[in-house]
Design a protein around this nucleic acid. Sequence first.
DNA 1: AATTAAGCCAACCGCGCAGGA
DNA 2: TTCCTGCGCGGTTGGCTTAAT
Length: 553
Amino acid sequence: MSRTTNESEDGVLSKDQIDSPLMDESNGGSGNGGMVLKKGPWTSAEDAILVEYVKKHGEGNWNAVQKHSGLFRCGKSCRLRWANHLRPNLKKGAFTPEEERLIVELHAKMGNKWARMAAHLPGRTDNEIKNYWNTRIKRRQRAGLPLYPPEVCLQAFQESQQGQSSGGINGVDRVQHDSMQANSFEIPDVVFDSLKGNGCVLPYVPDLPDISSGGMLMKGLGSAPYCGFMPPTMHRQKRLRESTALFSTSGGSFKNGFPQFDQFQNDTCDKVARTFGLPFPHDPDPTTRSPLSFGVIQGSHSLSNGNSSASKPTSGAVKLELPSLQYPETDLGSWSTSPPPPLLESIDAFIQSPPQVGTFEPDCTSPRNSGLLDALLHEAKALSSAKNHSSEKSSNSSSVTPGDVAKGSNLNICETEWEENRDPISPLGHSATSLFSECTPISASGSSLDEPPPAETFTGCNVKSEPVDQAWAPDKEKEIAPLMDYTRPDAILASEWFGNGMHESIASLLGDDLAAECKHLASGNPTSNQGLGFSSCPWNTMPPVCQMSAQHP
DNA sequence: AATTAAGCCAACCGCGCAGGA
DNA sequence: TTCCTGCGCGGTTGGCTTAAT
């Protein structure tokens, strides 16, 4: 596994190596007494030295290694080498199917917490898992598959329902898990099964609207651990920490008492939601609803045709790991073939009776993230909730106005702009762009992952008000488009929540001009309760907003 | 056979946290 | 309280390997 190029079996460092560009001269300063540290691949000799050192002195105090062992490596490098390659009991080779499943489950639960995931996978390192996951994501994205197998989604969903009924994640009095540690680390080795019990994922699902609105709105594009879905401009790690800090510093509880781990869970939920098709809670058109429209659907073409699956490395084969798509019959089969019908039914029921956005406790939409806009909206919401909450739920459930349809083109333009302004692989990208790409393969002909259909045909702006272009993957589009929009940041604007006098509150915060704009947009919203998927009008405003929030530190 | 693209993985980098001085 | 150091984590990169053309 470990490549030891620059191998110099007989020595720690040759002069060439020391003089090589690999040597980190920048680190040769204070801590190293001007000594040049070597970079790059480790040699077996270095490994031996490090192993010997650890045997004598134990792990830790890595900076001392270089001082006492003669290795020209920085402490970090030593630690990394030890942890990833030299320490005993490391398991080498391809991940077994069990491990893969575990990783998926853990990731669904933890997000990009590689070290924590590694704790559940004896012999595996965080780096290994991370690499595996990233590769898997790429594969699945390319293949148009959902990141999480339906089973995981369903489990998560089921968990969420249980959790919702049992305690309410949104409860103010909910105990603040000390970050994820409480739930993720203490989880027994077995992972996902235990996940069922801790309700850690569950909370998210019901909160999807919140996620899509508050979370995304605030965070901009960044919610997903996803890992690869994160906008390059904003590191998730950073965001997570920031948001966590935000939560923790605000008295340990957000107004609604979202625990710190909510952020973490948000990630999970986000992922689960995406896998679900994200917007799953709202499918305004029952006719389009089907098991396939849930979860599997986005990638379901693959799943259903047995082409899915995540990497299914050949068991025991170290270097024989092939792209997951080459193992359709194995793992994929289990993931894709048969989501438990009962679960689907429950999901279906959930879809039929999704939590109305308007019914959200105001605090449920409180900023889980540290986005500026989110904070503003939340504040505005808090200000307005008292006077507006009860009376205006229906007022904004206005139907589509002609003007809305007329706006279609503009909206589409804006949507296009939005598409252009976001990272194609961001969580939002997943909900929209990714959906495009994921659906295209099945749809037909000329489409490819690289060539998503024009946004205009898929924006959802007109989905409800007028038939979409049926020429393009009609069925799939019907299923997905409505769902998709729900995941968009603008959905919140389209919701009752936003419409319920929110503009008034916003006016106090943003000024009349902005508020007027918001009001205008909100009033033009063709959907209200159920039409979250068709938040076409507000959509216009979102790109700049999201950009702002995304840029917000 | 040569070239190119994609996959994969080890290692590096930056950041933040915790503990101690 | 502030600063420093050590450490760990997560994201990214560089380069090797393999597959495809």
